[in-house]
Amino acid sequence: MATETMRKLTMARAISEALAQEMERDPRVLVWGEDVGVYGGIFGATQGLYTRFGPDRVIDTPISESAFIGAAIGASAEGLRPVVELMFVDFFGVAMDQIYNHLAKNHYMSGGQFTHPVVLMCAVGGGYNDAAQHSQTLWGLFAHVPGLKIVVPSNAYDAKGLMISAIRDDNPVMYFFHKGLMGLGWMPSDDLAEVHVPEEPYTIPIGQANVVVEGADISLVTIGATVPRAVRAARQLAADGIRAEVVDLRTLVPLDKEAVLTSVRKTHRLVIIDEDYRSFGMSGEIAAICAEEALDFLEAPIRRLAVPDVPIPYARPLEQAVYPSVESIVQTARELLG
């Protein structure tokens, strides 16, 4: 019908639009990080902001992550609402103490006196052979520490709404955008992520999953770039008459437990797909929740597809061997139903 007026955006554009609209609305919102200024962010998340808001609100920082991420703690305590970008999640190691001992804990330790409305955003994920220090997702690592909200959009619509929510949230939010969903042009990007995005600002509640494909036979629970992969798998399975349900968690903390349980109680079968390492992470957490609260409903063992506890290797055949793929999702689902 009116499809021409249904504006589609890449996820990168959706994020920069959300940032621009929030900066327009609230002068306390500042953006800083490496190459966020003239360059517009290595993955385009801050495109156009420097021209529009100038160097006082869009600040290129030195490669001093402990300092500029830690600075967000003090700045937010004293009234600013910083959005801080660090290119790759893999780099957070150098600033970890500021994040997990301070940003995450100060609200609690201060008995609620201090709040830290900070968004830490970064790129995650692989699939283009950037090897072990530039391909991780690591959301499980951050989700493990109490006090950090974790957001992982799988498409441009969610990316905008979740970014606006993240900025308006009075808590630290780690906002992870997957490189393979950003629509960058210079790297493979799943076109399922490029969807209609309304021009006006809107929010998506942090902590609300989204059932992107409804089905009755098996639940595919996932987040980030494996959401479109699960959707493609569901389409293939549909051709075999298997009705798979795809649950996009959208946020890991808080986790929409009810959405997972509702789906599992309906389908009785669960595959968890995670681009993070397998052990001690998201996939284990969700399996545990289902074992605790929906065991009686399960008609097959829970299956997990995740990176098998090895660093992400560089070479193409090696990298492909460690990531969950459409094929591995389809095959696992068939096995569970077979």
Binding site: I63, Q133, P311, A315
Partner: peptide, 30 residues
């Protein structure tokens, strides 16, 4: 990214390791 590479293709251009030359590198700045 070949099997005959310094690390059998696990490292790549930013992660070259050659113990014989006492050489290593990293993609993490600093």
């Amino acid at each position: 990214g070949k099997a005959a590479g310094l690390s059998g293709g696990k490292g790549g251009h930013m992660h070259l390791f050659d113990a014989a030359a006492h050489f290593s590198c990293s993609g993490i700045v600093g």
